[in-house]
Simulated scan of single mutants.
Amino acid sequence: MNFSFDTILHNLPYLLGAAKWTILISLAGMAISIVLGVFICAARISKSDLLSRGAAVYISFFRGVPLLVQLLMFFYMLPHIGLDLPAILAAILSVGLCSAAYTAEILRGALQTIPAGQTEAAHALGMPPLSLWRRILVPQALRLGMPSLINELILLVKVSSLASVVGIGELTRVAQNITGQTYRPLEIYLAAAALYFVINFAIAQLGRLAERRLQLR
Rank of each mutant, 00 (worst) to 15 (best):
V57Y: 14
I40H: 02
S4N: 07
T113C: 10
W133F: 15
A90I: 06
G126M: 04
S99Y: 08
A100L: 04
S164A: 15
A104D: 04
I8Y: 05
Y14T: 04
L190V: 14
F39P: 10
Q112G: 15
R208T: 14
G17P: 04
M146H: 11
N200R: 05
I88F: 05
Y102K: 02
V157R: 00
N200W: 06
S46R: 04
F39C: 14
S94I: 03
S164H: 11
T7G: 03
R108Y: 11
A210P: 10
T182M: 13
Q140C: 06
S160Q: 03
S164V: 09
L71H: 07
F61S: 11
P86H: 06
L9R: 05
L27V: 13
Q176W: 11
P115C: 15
N151V: 02
R184M: 07
A194W: 06
I168K: 00
A104N: 04
I136C: 13
H123N: 09
M73Q: 09
L36E: 10
T182V: 14
V38H: 00
N2T: 10
L51A: 11
A141P: 13
F3D: 08
L12E: 02
A43R: 02
T22E: 01
F3C: 06
L9K: 04
L36I: 14
P147W: 12
K20F: 14
A28W: 09
A124T: 07
A56L: 07
F197C: 15
L16S: 12
L51S: 08
P185D: 06
S48T: 05
S160K: 02
A121P: 05
N177F: 09
T103V: 12
A42K: 15
L190E: 08
L15R: 07
D49E: 12
V35A: 13
G37M: 07
L111H: 13
D84S: 12
L132K: 11
L51N: 05
R184Q: 12
F62D: 02
I59R: 01
R135F: 13
V95G: 01
A193K: 09
I106D: 01
I40Y: 03
F197W: 15
T172D: 00
G96E: 02
A192Y: 09
Y102A: 02
A110H: 10
A191N: 03
V166T: 11
F197T: 15
S26V: 03
A122W: 11
I203R: 01
Q205A: 12
I168Y: 07
I81P: 04
P79S: 03
E170Y: 07
L130F: 15
P128Y: 07
S131N: 14
P86R: 06
I81N: 03
I114N: 10
I32P: 01
F62N: 02
L130S: 14
L50P: 10
R208H: 14
D84W: 09
A91S: 14
D84C: 05
A104R: 01
P66F: 08
L85P: 01
L142F: 08
L15P: 01
F3T: 08
G169A: 15
E170N: 05
V174A: 01
I114L: 12
D84H: 12
V174H: 00
K158Y: 14
T172M: 08
A43G: 12
I178G: 03
S48Y: 05
A194K: 08
